[in-house]
Simulated scan of single mutants.
Amino acid sequence: MRAGLVLVFVLVAAAGGGLVLLRFGREESELPPPVPAIVEGIFAEQRLWLRLDNGDLVSLRPDAARPEPEALPGKALGICRAGALPMVLSQGAGQGAWLLQTRASGKWSPGRSLAAEKDSLIAFGCGERSVYIVTSRRLLTVEGDTVRETALGRELEAPIVSTTLFADAASLWIGFNNGEWGGGLIRIRRSDGKLESLERNASGTLCGGPLNAGCDPVNAIAASPRDPACVVAAIGLVHMMSHGRIVELCGNGIRRLYYKAEDHQPPYPDKNADEPGNTVAFFGATRVGGNLWAVGSDGLYRFPGSGPVAFRSLPRFEERGGYRVSFAIPDVVLVLTNVNGKASLGGAVPLLVVR
């Protein structure tokens, strides 16, 4: 039996300003099989590790044609780099249990079992000496053989798309990506679990910034290149229009560090009056040496400790077993993901992984 015909409709602008409907037909058998969306990635043991939205974990060497699947006892819930080694949090064998494993010399450790206690997992990440698991009600801090549990000041709701976690000397910073519903940023004091939502609406309008939980998905958090006591957050959303900026947070102060106009659309009444309607969306940021690298919808940005921002266009992405990646830049790896499509109308966006 022949495969069914798939019809694709595309609206394009005609020369006179109207819209023309184009229809393309393709046999279903000709379409490539879909691959699970990438949620996050790290680079360790000379390869790229990718956690997928179906719970699989794959790894890709820079010279390999396709990624290799990694066998885990359960679905991968989070991945981070502990020193030079990959660490993964997965669903444990027992009901209501998580398993924390490290990989070294080509093998995964037996792992440590942690009680989930029917909590929702909010965020997972590695600091310099500790591993952090943030649930809807608790902060679990793992240091060697010790697990310390701290109750949060209030209960958290799981993100619609993803979270990002950054640890400094005293706090955990967690960015939420809820797609077209925003996301925002919270700070958790590690000593007692006190939790703060960090926002600032300078204009007072519906989606005024520089940081608005109802409108701004936070896709990455990193140390500021200009002040070690501060952090920066990458904000980005493509949902029919493009919207984003880089903000800097110092203590309770929040300021816009950078934005870039995508076109010359006038400002919208519900957004910042000093920003155009379309701005570059930022989907990743990381500190490399004394520089902050950020990836936007149009290219790669380098923010030095002082001086102007340097920009370069995105490199060519190579197809590797259904995934689009680039190892062309020495300090970082770029990978395209369509995971944001579950909560916005944007297409594939670039993620940034530090080597």
Rank of each mutant, 00 (worst) to 15 (best):
G78K: 04
D263M: 10
L237D: 07
V134W: 07
A328H: 03
A281I: 02
A328K: 10
S326D: 12
S197W: 13
V10I: 14
G55F: 02
V325H: 09
L152C: 01
V332L: 02
A261S: 15
D274W: 09
R2H: 13
L60A: 02
W108Q: 13
L336H: 06
A65L: 12
H243N: 15
D168Q: 12
V8S: 13
P69A: 14
A76K: 08
T102R: 15
G175R: 09
G341P: 00
S105I: 04
T279H: 05
S297F: 12
S224A: 13
Y301Q: 09
T205I: 00
V161Y: 02
D227M: 02
V10H: 15
L72D: 04
S120Y: 04
P308G: 03
P33Y: 03
L156I: 13
C250M: 13
D145W: 00
A294V: 08
G346I: 03
E199Y: 03
E275K: 01
K342Y: 00
G25Y: 08
A84H: 06
A44E: 14
K107F: 11
P33T: 09
R51C: 11
T135N: 05
Q95M: 11
R187Y: 10
L19E: 14
L89K: 02
S162P: 00
G96Q: 14
I188N: 05
E143C: 00
E28G: 05
A167C: 12
L206P: 00
A71F: 03
L345I: 04
A93V: 13
L198N: 02
V325G: 10
M87V: 14
L152D: 03
A14M: 04
S113K: 12
I160T: 15
R189N: 01
A169P: 00
L300T: 02
A310G: 01
E157V: 10
L257C: 01
V325F: 08
L156W: 04
F43M: 09
P276K: 07
G78M: 09
T150Y: 04
E117K: 11
L152P: 01
D145H: 01
R302L: 13
G111A: 12
G253Q: 15
S326R: 10
R23L: 14
D145M: 04
F327G: 15
A65Q: 11
D53I: 03
L85G: 00
L19V: 14
A93C: 02
L21K: 09
F303Y: 12
F282G: 01
R23Y: 06
L99F: 01
L50W: 05
V238A: 13
V20T: 06
S344E: 11
G307W: 07
E40V: 03
E262H: 02
K75M: 12
V288T: 08
E40F: 03
V247C: 01
A14W: 02
V8A: 10
N177T: 11
G289K: 03
A261T: 06
R256D: 12
I122T: 07
R355Q: 15
R103I: 13
W173Q: 02
S105K: 13
L100M: 06
T102L: 15
R137P: 00
K75N: 10
A65S: 10
D145I: 01
S242R: 07
E28D: 12
R137K: 08
P308S: 11
G179K: 08
P62S: 08
L50M: 15
G175N: 06
V20P: 00
N54T: 09
P62D: 05
I122S: 03
F282M: 10
E70N: 11
G284Q: 09
D270P: 00
A116P: 00
P34H: 06
V147Y: 05
